[in-house]
């Protein structure tokens, strides 16, 4: 018992140290640059003009917006790593991969709903799943992904004592065991997310 408590305390301390490092805000210019890159890409897509004057206008406007809203997008990005490598990793590698996976899961979930509607073979229940993510953004993307994966809908997210739990409404409850349910519900999405968000 005593040993268990000590071990647990150690764990919590380690996590607090880790979190306080990872949850440190990035330096302001990094935050601005990341926000600015995302917004500028968005601007180019919606405006559809490539002449220099338009690009300069867009850059200026998005820079202003990025300075104002620098905390909004970049709160939970990992502290470790270099800015350029992180940005390249995020925009070129992780997001496409994530989108690709989600597309197929969405397809699967759609077909599953069709099946459920036709045969009404539902067995709904609400299960509790532990998540290894700790940041708000990570949890949010995870929750939204879970909502889009077959047969599950996130009902609530709670963070207690540094541990995050998801309450998931499962249309066809297969198991009540937390670990197995977590494996079934979260799949590999969580692993992908852990690479960006802490």
């Amino acid at each position: 018992m005593h040993f268990y408590l000590r071990q647990r305390l150690e764990e919590v301390r380690k996590r607090v140290l880790y979190e306080s490092y990872e949850a440190q805000k990035l330096p302001a210019w990094e935050r601005i640059v990341i926000t600015w890159m995302a917004l500028f890409a968005f601007w180019i897509v919606i405006s559809g003009k490539f002449s220099p004057s338009h690009m300069i206008t867009g850059a200026l406007v998005t820079l202003i917006v990025a300075v104002v809203t620098r905390d909004f997008l970049t709160d939970d990005i990992r502290q470790t790593g270099h800015l350029i490598s992180k940005a390249a990793y995020i925009f070129l590698f992780l997001i496409p991969q994530y989108l690709f996976i989600m597309a197929f899961r969405l397809l699967e979930s759609n077909l599953k709903v069709v099946k459920n509607v036709l045969f009404m073979d539902i067995n709904p229940g609400i299960v509790k799943v532990k998540s290894n993510l700790h940041s708000n953004t990570g949890l949010t993307v995870l929750a939204n992904s879970i909502t889009l994966t077959p047969g599950t809908l996130t009902l609530d997210v709670t963070k207690k004592l540094g541990e995050a739990y998801l309450y998931v409404h499962w249309i066809d409850v297969e198991t009540l065991d937390g670990e197995k349910a977590g494996m079934k519900i979260k799949g590999e999405i969580e692993e992908w997310l852990k690479k960006i968000f802490w």
Partner: peptide, 25 residues
């Protein structure tokens, strides 16, 4: 809830950009 808060935070800068685009163009 946390999900709503974070999603709105993620969407807001894009919305502001979109508004700026509509204003300028």
């Amino acid at each position: 809830s946390l999900v709503v808060r974070t999603t709105t935070k993620l969407v807001a800068p894009f919305l502001v950009t979109y508004g700026a685009y509509l204003t300028i163009y």
